[in-house]
Amino acid sequence: MKRPELDRPVLLDVQGITRLYGPGKGCEELDLRLHAGEVLGIVGESGSGKSTLLRVLAGLEAPDAGRVVYHRAADDALDLYAIGEARRRALLRLEWGLVHQNPRDGLRMGVSAGANVGERLMALGQRHYGQLRAAGQDWMTQVELDPARIDDAPRTFSGGMQQRLQIARTLVTRPRLVFMDEPTGGLDVSVQARLLDMLRTLVRQLGLSVVLVTHDLAVARLLAHRLLVMRRGRVVEAGLTDQILDDPQHAYTQLLVSSVLTP
């Protein structure tokens, strides 16, 4: 019998991260570990430091203290803020991906959908127009967009389609690690549901590791294996998603879970 791999290697090791914009604003003394193939959800109310943490993890903002160590291979560990900016940006461009809450932040609105999907490939040195186009059409199909619209500008797409395009653009280089900041924010529920379904399929198919920031517990329940609950810049509770949502221990988590509206 094939046994599941129980002890997955650590991909991202975060030690004592502090990034404060002012007292209580930002995140403080955070430790976390992300294993390969794992989806880690970070939940909490607005202003709890979720997005700051994500920016620090994603290499966009240097922490005041602490280290972010990326284990590229078993014997190849990179301290994200000790390596130079050139390597950090290359890592971000090639091995990692970032999906913004607002697709306008992640897409180039002035150029066509195909150019958006192809950009990361071109940054990698791909210089064959036919292949770039084929990759564009392939990825548009994978995120359930009509490949015939490859030459249309993203602004002619609906919000949900723009978000799909952003995901295609990020995944085209097959990153190992993807950061998502409220990927379903601003979408209506039926569009959300389809997007989540697609995301879940892609994450499983590609074996992605994901750090997912959301304030929506339903999204976290559907996608995340493990959850961190944040409040005022600190982690108040961590554990398996179902365990935390069904049996919250910390008072704040209990409040959060009981605040969910059910129709």
């Binding site: 150029v111 192809g118 990698l124 770039l132």
Partner: peptide, 10 residues
């Protein structure tokens, strides 16, 4: 980081 120059030509 000159990949974006190619985007214009694309």
């Amino acid at each position: 980081e000159y990949g974006v120059m190619q985007v214009k030509l694309y």
